[in-house]
């Protein structure tokens, strides 16, 4: 079978092609992902405000000093990833790699700090809704931090493939967006869990 079409007058119109789809799709996904956190946050708030005895017996509350250091680390990593992206935009690939690696180090330190905090706690996942929500929220967020570090590793490896990042890289932009997202979630989480201690 042969099918005849009128030829287009100008160049093919799909020149724009797939270049920007990935980033659009990723932003849409992030918007959706934020609703899970919204659900967990509102569930936490509801359980906390309606609880008769929020803290399990023998637990005084949460230490906030170490998580605060952790917060500073994570928030500053948002700055370093921005610097990495800017270096990339200027074509400075080694500058990008340096700041990217620094961001990965800060993210890993955050995970380490989280693990240290968990191991020193007096309560577990099944210690009432207090323990349940604490580990659920910090664990689910930690999973996102780990995913972010994983994505960064992937992008770092890709940066060594010649010619890969010549025209800017959507994967880098997407990872960076994801990292800022994880950061903002942490700030809300920190306020909800560590700052808001009195119920």
């Amino acid at each position: 079978m042969t099918t005849a079409y009128p030829a287009p007058n100008a160049e093919p119109q799909h020149v724009e092609g797939h270049e920007k789809h990935n980033l659009t799709g990723f932003i849409i996904f992030l918007c959706s992902e934020s609703v899970i956190f919204l659900a967990f946050f509102s569930g936490y708030a509801l359980l906390k405000t309606s609880a008769l005895d929020w803290l399990p017996p023998g637990v005084e509350g949460l230490e906030w000093q170490m998580p605060l250091i952790n917060s500073v680390v994570l928030v500053s990593s948002s700055g370093t990833i921005y610097l990495a992206e800017r270096a990339m935009a200027k074509g400075n690939i080694w500058g990008f790699r340096a700041f990217w690696l620094l961001t990965m180090a800060l993210g890993s330190y955050f995970l380490y700090g989280q693990a240290v905090e968990w191991s020193g706690l007096q309560f577990g996942f099944t210690s009432g809704t207090f323990g349940g929500t604490f580990y659920l929220l910090t664990g689910f967020h930690g999973l996102h931090v780990a995913t972010g570090v994983g994505l960064m590793t992937l992008m770092l490896i890709k940066s060594f493939i010649p010619g890969n990042y010549n025209g800017g890289e959507q994967g880098v932009q997407a990872t960076s967006l994801f990292w800022h997202f994880v950061d903002v979630i942490w700030i809300i989480l920190f306020v909800l869990i560590y700052v808001w201690q009195r119920s």
Partner: peptide, 22 residues
């Protein structure tokens, strides 16, 4: 909408298999 059910279902699964009390 769907992430809300996903979040709720994760907590349900935890209640079912991990002994939490959400």
């Amino acid at each position: 909408g769907l992430p809300s059910l996903t979040g709720g279902a994760i907590m349900l699964l935890m209640d079912l298999v991990a002994g939490t009390t959400f």
